[in-house]
Design a protein around this nucleic acid. Structure first.
Length: 809
RNA sequence: GCGAGAGUGGUGAAAUUGGCAGACACGCCAGACUUAGGAUCUGGUGCCUCACGGCGUAAGGGUUCAAGUCCCUUCUCUCGCACCA
């Protein structure tokens, strides 16, 4: 028996959808807001490898959802595009001299064709690619807005520099690996280097980025990750005077209530006071330590397992609460980039300080107690409790003490409340060719001058070589005629900024360009934005939890502040699809040779089988292994459906059992499709087909609704069957079938009879039978009377239409 | 170490409010049809037992008439963070 002719069917309907622009949408004002949906996929980076099977997973899910919503009368925006700036094309250009634009566009064409081969219902009229000048014109435009609002600035910062890539990386692009810190892309070693970079002041939005999370229907895990990444903490800055000299050391602490337990202080080796306060006799030792710390990689410095090190500076500070003189140390366990770069050490109540104090034999004082009594501290007690050894504050609960001491310090100008974030400003410049040029010029007279908005886009020049200069400058720096320009303000000689933007820039706002992709005057009209935004459903991989999703939220909030968008948050609901693993549950990778190529799957099994299979594997959100045997199972199902369509269609009504199953099926498939639980919806369709398969002829009223249910899942086959049924036009325009609740319930039910919680018998009775009747019938059932004979019956529990539990003594 | 999530047949997985554990599918077994079968159709398939029956949702305990589901303890795995004071 040969397979159904999926190849012809799929080609035919893909051509039909294309010719008829079946899925293009416009901003029709007659459609009320609540009948509109914006469903978005994370657009792909068009790599040379082509689509992998992970892409179609999320794309199929949104496609099914969109088709379902359309059939239910919704107006759905479902666009696709390409995140087409990026390093691989540039690396390839360095190796071969091929222009990145050329490879990128080849890859885009391949991706588009692959995506189309799966029959997704995108509105292709809205396709955008971030590397095109008509797109990045607006990326640059947004950058200038950020600059105008003081959210983009230059700073010399220690940044991650990657020798192999010849560029600076963002914190988020550096990952810890067993071999040390490496670039996320390419796994190359990275090092810390101070360089002048463009920074975006995302920290200014830290609170709003944090608060906004509460309003979003996102996975808790992603929200938690973002919260942790932002890392807000509240406490106090406390000022310690230096003993015997002028000057102060300011520290940040979340536990000002432990101030009486501060027995020493620690500065980061890079702290500006280190040089000033170090005494003569300690200078040599301190300088040596500072230098070693500076040479250490950050991995070494942040390795938790390593023993803490430090040296005494010879200086002392005065504890403002009790006038105690305490020594000032330096150690690389204190980070210059967090808080004030200095701490008061409370070894009794901080694990790190405890470890350090033990090693260097510094005093440990207990100032917090669980119950108000003193005991020996074998480890730091970090919990909240009651103050002890704290002078007039003894007996206060931690929470209350914190408030009191902050006020006390503030009255004496020795401290104030403080808030800190782990989030750092976003290092935004890249020393690369294949990215958006930063639209600024450096004028000797006027300083940094933005290129006027109407002069955008500032396009990428052609270059001889794509290699980074290695000096920390981008390949653009080598193009004299491009770099040397006029100052837009004074007309004098000026030089262009040669840094480009990171790949994240284009993806920060692409969902807005889809709303109005041809607009020449604005990035998107306010009308189009108001019509569609916010995104109702956003589906993509969890790897973007804190990068893309945080950056995009940041830009969106800025655009909101400018008045360009109508909402404070861009993505209302987010779903992360799980990874598709190789057979056996291991990661798919080239080195393991277990990569499944979607083209081959489509060629062998068809797009509908591929779509259905990926959805049938399991819940969308979880990772699940690919199984080549498994796909033949869903193909068999589609085959059966197709063969079934060859049977005679009758106009007689289906029998009661089929009718009931039909309505149950419509109900289950409707609820599960709306709830993005596609695996169980497919299982229900299989159950239905298994039953229909037993019939010699198909009642039209049992078959027609099924074809509609199938349409979101296997759209090509459904179109074909729809046409066979004598319909003109696309099934996409057909309505979704409705079910009658009363027809979904069984009139006879099987009730199990338990004795002491164990199933001993069962009986078939009318649904809705009353309790007394059920009880009576239960005792008439076989084995029940013999098993209960001579026993005291303590209790009878009846769950209507489900179960009877007879409890005996 | 901290945070989040997950552990159910040989495999992928199902299972409203606690109410027949294993739907659906893969695989396997048997049969039918066939020159043939990696096609198709029908039936079977958690484990132990000839059977009656017993045992089963990572392990142990608890609540309950009743626990995959609720509570406690432990273990394992995945993901994220990694001295953030």
């Amino acid at each position: 028996m040969e397979k159904y002719p999926f190849c012809e069917i799929e080609k035919k309907w893909q051509a039909y959808w294309e010719e008829n622009s079946t899925f293009s949408v416009t901003e029709d004002p007659s459609v009320p807001k609540e009948r509109r949906r914006y469903v978005l996929d994370m657009f792909p980076y068009p790599s040379a490898a082509g689509l992998h099977v992970g892409h179609p997973e999320g794309y199929t899910a949104t496609d099914i959802y969109c088709r379902y919503m359309r059939m239910n009368g919704y107006h759905v925006l479902h666009p696709m595009g390409f995140d087409s700036f990026g390093l691989p094309a540039e690396t390839y250009a360095i190796e071969t001299g091929t222009h990145p634009k050329e490879t990128t566009e080849q890859n885009i064409n391949r991706f588009r064709q692959q995506i189309k081969s799966l029959g997704f219902s995108y509105d292709w009229n809205r396709e955008v690619s971030t590397h095109t000048a008509r797109y990045y014109r607006w990326t640059q435009w947004i950058f200038l807005k950020l600059y105008e609002r003081g959210l983009a600035y230059q700073a010399e910062v220690p940044v991650w520099f990657c020798e192999a890539l010849g560029t600076v990386l963002a914190n988020e692009e550096v990952v810890a690996t067993p071999e040390g810190l490496r670039s996320e892309r390419g796994n190359h070693p990275v090092e810390r280097k101070p360089l002048t970079q463009w920074m975006l002041k995302i920290t200014q939005y830290a609170d709003r980025l944090l608060e906004g999370l509460d309003t979003l229907a996102w996975p808790e895990s992603i929200k938690t990750m973002q919260r942790n990444w932002i890392g807000k903490s509240t406490g106090a800055n406390v000022v310690f005077k230096l003993a015997g000299g002028e000057g102060t050391i300011e520290v940040y602490t979340t536990r000002p209530d432990t101030l009486f337990g501060a027995t020493y202080m620690v500065l980061a080796p890079e702290h500006r006071l280190v040089d000033k306060i170090t005494t003569k006799d300690k200078r040599r030792e301190v300088e040596e330590y500072v230098q070693t710390a500076g040479q250490k990689s950050d991995l070494e410095r942040t390795d938790l397992a390593k023993e803490k090190t430090g040296v005494f500076t010879g200086a002392y500070a005065v504890n403002p609460v009790n006038g105690e003189k305490i020594p000032v140390w330096i150690s690389d366990y204190i980070l210059i980039s967090y808080g004030t770069g200095a701490i008061m050490a409370v070894p009794g109540h901080d694990e790190r300080d405890f470890e350090f104090a033990k090693k260097y034999d510094l005093p440990i004082i207990q100032v917090v107690s669980r119950d108000g009594t003193l005991h020996r501290l074998d480890e730091a007690y970090v919990e909240y409790g009651v103050a002890v050894n704290s002078g007039q504050f003894d007996g206060l609960a931690t929470e209350e003490f914190k408030e009191k001491i902050i006020t006390w310090l503030a009255e004496r100008n020795a401290g104030e409340p403080a808030v800190n974030y782990k989030l750092r400003d976003w290092i935004f410049s890249r020393q690369r060719y294949w990215g958006e040029p930063i639209p600024l010029v450096h004028c000797r007279k006027c300083g940094i001058v933005p290129i006027p908005y109407e002069k955008l886009p500032l396009t990428l020049p052609e270059v001889e070589s794509y290699k980074p200069t290695g000096t920390g400058e981008s390949p653009l720096a080598a193009i004299e005629e491009w770099v040397n320009t006029e100052c837009p303000r004074c007309g004098g000689p000026a030089k262009r900024e040669t840094n480009t933007m990171p790949q994240w820039a284009g993806s920060c706002w692409y969902y807005l360009r889809f709303l109005d992709p041809q607009n020449k005057n604005e990035l998107a009209s306010r009308e189009a934005t108001d019509y569609w935004m916010p995104v109702d459903l956003y589906v993509g991989g969890a790897e973007h939890a804190v990068l893309h999703l945080l950056y995009a939220r940041f830009w969106h909030k800025v655009l909101y502040d400018i008045g360009l968008v109508n909402t404070d948050e861009p993505f209302l609901r987010l779903i992360n699809q799980g990874m598709i693993l190789g057979e056996g549950g291991v990661k798919m990778s080239k080195s393991l040779g277990n990569v499944i190529n979607p083209d081959e799957v489509v060629a062998e099994y068809g797009a509908d089988s591929m779509r259905l299979y990926e959805m049938f594997l399991g819940p969308l959100e979880v990772s699940k292994p690919w199984s080549t045997q498994g796909i033949s199972g869903v193909q068999r199902f589609l085959d059966r459906v197709y063969r079934l369509s060859g049977r005679r269609i009758s106009d007689t009504a289906p029998d009661a059992a089929i009718l009931r199953l039909l309505h149950k099926t419509i109900k289950k498939v409707s609820e599960d499709t709306g709830g993005i639980e596609f695996n169980t919806a497919i299982a229900q369709m299989m159950i239905y087909i298994n039953e229909l398969y037993k019939l010699d002829e198909l009642p039209r009223s049992a078959w027609d609704p099924f074809v509609r249910l199938l349409a979101p899942y296997a759209p090509h086959l459904a179109e074909e069957l729809w046409q066979q049924l004598g319909n003109n036009g696309s099934i996409a325009d057909a309505g979704w079938p409705e079910y009658d609740e009363t027809l979904t319930v069984e009139d006879r039910v099987t009730v199990v009879i338990q004795i002491n919680g164990k199933v001993r018998s069962r009986m078939e009775i009318d649904a809705g039978t009353g309790r007394e009747e059920v009880e009576k019938l239960a005792f008439e059932a076989p084995r029940v009377s013999e098993l209960t004979a001579g026993k005291e019956i303590r209790k009878i529990i009846i769950v209507p239409d489900k179960l009877v539990n007879i409890v005996t003594a």
